[in-house]
Design a protein around this nucleic acid. Structure first.
Length: 571
RNA sequence: GGGCAGGUGGCCUAGUCUGGAUAUGGCGGCAGCCUCCUAAGCUGCAAGCCGGGGGUUCGAAUCCCCUCCUGCUCGCCA
């Protein structure tokens, strides 16, 4: 157990002991962390049982507690008992832990739990645009945190290669002449296919005979026509190649790609259908389609029906999604779906259907709001869109210009490498920074922010620490807390010691936005220390201070890694 | 119309689950700081009826009710 946990436990026990000495029946002792004290115990809820005002109770309790173990002291203030941690013990243990564990600092031991994180899963009908860019970034960050929580994490992308939109695209690729399709925005498979998709949609809307041909293709697809299914899969694969290149550019690599059509091919979707039909909630309408009545499952609104087969008996997306989830349950202990907010109802219906199927397992959905443009919602079909590829290029270009102007000494190749790390880092940080459910309007000036609470700020501090260690040369690590007594040093160490609990919350509670807030706290504490405390020329304190710099660098590198950001050693 | 989410200084945002001590941080603005380890930095200042109204409570940004604004959603689409 780490210092902070032991401290929290000791403080809670000290309060309990004090209360029982005072003859007060203690319920439970709550502790909270704030910037006012290392740990606080509010006395408000206990004051009734104690028969005295919170303020008085806090004073009495604090009077009962004397320093021991990790508790350096307890003082009453405004109805709180504020605990101070033994700063030397905290510093020594924290620095020793970081030196010993290095890249592994902040990681929990293996839990043996298999966690599946499905994210991105955008339809293979167009490039990823910034409206949906939160999905891979949140999903990948969450997966990285969960890995550091000790779990065996699998990330996966569910490829929707079934349905009308991919068929329309496939028809377009085969039938729209290149000349009619118009040029693509960039030479990358996903972008090259966009003009065909747009033109196919345009024709389908305007030309009844095109509409009929696409409908025919769809019928053959549904009927299991191997030729059509093969062509559609081929188009989807081509598109996916482009999407994967984009994901790779922002540091997102998925472990697994699962194809929707496989659940038709292997018969599992059909099995789901027959199981559902046997349920008491299932009913068939006059035209032959089947649905579940979910009014008993907390689904509200005028339509509580969840249709799971068409009148011709074919399956629907949601039916196949059920098969997919059963599949995921069979190979993982915990299933997390990172979904756009448009999937909220669908996800709820899915969970109800899973319960009807007798599943005792449910996915944990995590929703994010779409990013919109100042002029409104993004749409690839309408061309109102900013592609993630364009955002990446823009961010990297801007980062390159910054590097070149600040560091004319750096060779071009190195500058490119830094620019890539910084540009991508700025994008990722900017997205995980805000709570996923918050609506976001995309503005270039925000997306490309390199100052203040930004990705580059964190990376800069890391690079600064690297630079100091480089300049200092060899030194002997010295985690002696008696040499690190400056208030700014103490504050930095306190921040460093919190990394593990932050990763735990970010992962287990799926609150990934805690990570950038924490990284900013550490970086900011480092900068204040840096500005006020000399390190390299500090005589006998030099080794101790360099040790602190090295530990801060390690924690920053680990935090950046959790966010999928690179940690350049200079910039 | 129903359901679900969001509404916090000019702009963006934390805190809301688990009510508590002077509401977090950033951008922008203003004023300072490179003869010291990277100024993508540091210091200070100005700026808030926590959408609005009721209620519960010793105490509400946080809980309850009502209401307004924004987004999403209510397919034999995916």
């Amino acid at each position: 157990m780490k210092v902070r946990e032991r401290f929290a436990r000791e403080a809670a026990e000290a309060v309990s002991a004090a209360l029982s000495r005072m003859g007060v029946e203690a319920a439970q002792v709550a502790t909270e962390v704030s910037d006012r004290a290392d740990l606080s115990v509010p006395c408000f809820s206990m004051s009734k049982a104690a028969g005295m005002a919170p303020k008085e109770l806090a004073e009495r309790i604090a009077g009962e507690i004397s320093p021991s173990g990790l508790i350096a002291g307890a003082s009453p203030l405004n109805g709180y008992v504020n605990f101070a941690i033994d700063a030397e013990a905290l510093a020594r243990e924290t620095l020793e832990d970081i030196l010993r564990e290095g890249d592994g600092y902040g990681s929990a031991p293996p839990s043996g739990l298999r966690v599946n994180v499905e994210h991105t899963s955008t339809n293979p009908t167009g490039p990823i645009h910034v409206g949906r860019a939160r999905n891979p970034i949140i999903g990948d960050t969450l997966a990285r945190c969960l890995s550091r929580c000790g779990h065996d994490v699998t990330t996966e992308y569910y490829v929707n290669d079934v349905g009308k939109q991919v068929v329309v695209l496939t028809w377009g690729v085969e039938n729209v002449p290149e000349a009619d399709a118009g040029g693509a925005d960039r030479d990358k498979t996903d972008h090259r296919l966009v003009p065909y998709y747009r033109e196919a949609n345009r024709r389908m809307e305007g030309e009844p005979e095109v509409q009929e041909r696409i409908a025919e293709m769809l019928r053959r697809f549904e009927a299991g026509d191997a030729e059509v299914i093969g062509k559609v899969r081929e188009t989807a694969e081509a598109m996916l190649g482009g999407l994967r290149a984009t994901l790779s550019a922002i540091g997102v690599e998925l472990d697994r790609y699962t194809w929707e059509s496989d659940f038709i091919a292997d018969g599992s979707a059909a099995r789901i259908v027959s199981e559902l039909k046997a349920s008491e909630h299932a009913e068939q309408t006059e035209d032959g389609s089947w649905n579940l009545d979910l009014k008993d499952f907390g689904i509200q609104g005028k339509n509580t029906r969840f249709t799971f087969t068409r009148s011709d008996g074919t399956t629907l997306y949601t039916t196949r999604d059920l098969a997919y989830h059963m599949d995921k349950f069979s190979r993982s202990d915990r299933v997390i779906d990172v979904l756009g907010e448009d999937q909220k109802l669908g996800s709820k219906q899915l969970c109800s259907a899973l319960r009807i199927l007798g599943s005792d397992r449910l996915p944990e959905p995590m929703f994010y709001s779409f990013v919109s443009l100042p002029e409104g919602k993004m749409s690839t079909r309408k061309g109102v869109v900013v592609y993630l590829d364009d955002l990446i290029d823009e961010a990297v270009d801007r980062a390159r210009a910054e590097v070149l102007s600040r560091r004319p000494d750096i060779p071009a190749e190195k500058a490119d490498e830094i620019a890539e790390a910084v540009g991508v880092g700025a994008i990722r940080y900017n997205i995980v920074r805000v709570q996923p459910e918050k609506q976001l309007v995309f503005r270039w000036e925000d997306a490309l922010n390199f100052d203040g609470n930004s990705g580059p700020y964190i990376q800069y501090v890391h690079a600064r620490a690297c630079s100091m260690l480089r300049k200092a040369g060899a030194y002997s690590p010295d985690p002696d807390p008696s040499k690190l007594t400056d208030e700014l040093e103490a504050r930095l160490i306190r921040s460093l010691s919190r990394f593990g609990e932050v990763v735990r919350s970010a992962g287990e509670l799926r609150r990934v936005h805690l990570l950038p807030a924490y990284a900013h706290e550490v970086a900011s504490a480092f900068n204040q220390f840096y500005a006020a405390v000399p390190v390299i020329s500090s005589g006998e304190l030099r080794d101790a201070r360099l040790t602190l710099v090295e530990c801060a660098r390690t924690v920053l590198r680990n935090a950046l890694d959790c966010m999928g950001m690179k940690a350049p050693e200079e910039m």
